[in-house]
Design a binder for these strands. Sequence first.
DNA 1: GGTGGGGCTTCCAGTTAGTGGAAGGTCAAG
DNA 2: CTTGACCTTCCACTAACTGGAAGCCCCACC
Lengths: 130, 130
Amino acid sequence: MNIGAAAERTCLPPKTIRYYEDIGLVAAPRDANGYRAFGAAELHKLAFLGRARTLGFTIEDCRTLLALWEDKRRSSENVKRVAEVHLKAIEQKIAMLQSLKQTLSDLVENCAGDERPECPILDDLAGKRI
Amino acid sequence: MNIGAAAERTCLPPKTIRYYEDIGLVAAPRDANGYRAFGAAELHKLAFLGRARTLGFTIEDCRTLLALWEDKRRSSENVKRVAEVHLKAIEQKIAMLQSLKQTLSDLVENCAGDERPECPILDDLAGKRI
DNA sequence: GGTGGGGCTTCCAGTTAGTGGAAGGTCAAG
DNA sequence: CTTGACCTTCCACTAACTGGAAGCCCCACC
């Protein structure tokens, strides 16, 4: 299967698949003409990567998870640790964004949003606290 | 005031201040020796930028907001629009992260996390839905 | 057999918002 | 006069791709 078909099956752009090969995540063997030939194994790895990426794991996380996935003697403990660290990071990001949202929506609410120049948003940015 | 002092006052690293000059956000005049000389105006702009960045505005948003801030004939409507778009983006990001967190914490919860190789996290990534 | 269009290859450059480091000029203290 | 801290510029690197150019390759159509 050529890269275009593999891209369609895995919902990853061809560019991304080539990039994953570049950084050593998934290598497909080549046909005589130099085209990449994707088999079931490569498709599975790509799908694995796609899912892991949509779950927000970094590429380096993916590398680790892929290695664990391939290691039949792995312990689930290792996988769980990676996932838990990632989960903590997500929770922190959510908390940060929520406090950000609070501040920003307060500012937006207090702004008239009309033709006049007075603007509490700019005042806040400039450091004049209300 | 030299860049080091300006950095301390504005809580921005010197590198960042130089970068902001590079991309045309804030330019400080120079002393005879070539050192940047920061006055009150530049410090205010830098503080404005620092605050806007911690609120998650992009550099391009900052450029717009800075221009509006300097324009005494601005209408607060324009500012509010920028802030509202940003707020919407934040809300979307929060929603995405929360659904992510849900999925991931479900997976983590179902993983034994011991020395056995069975792992629902990897199963999910591989596409075997529980 | 030639041609056209699409798909494939590689490589280079750009994205965001800085950060790290090297090479060299400047300043104030001892 | 030297030392160390500070300043300057410039280049390279980060994450995870994405866009585009130049050049093969394959297949269908005439």
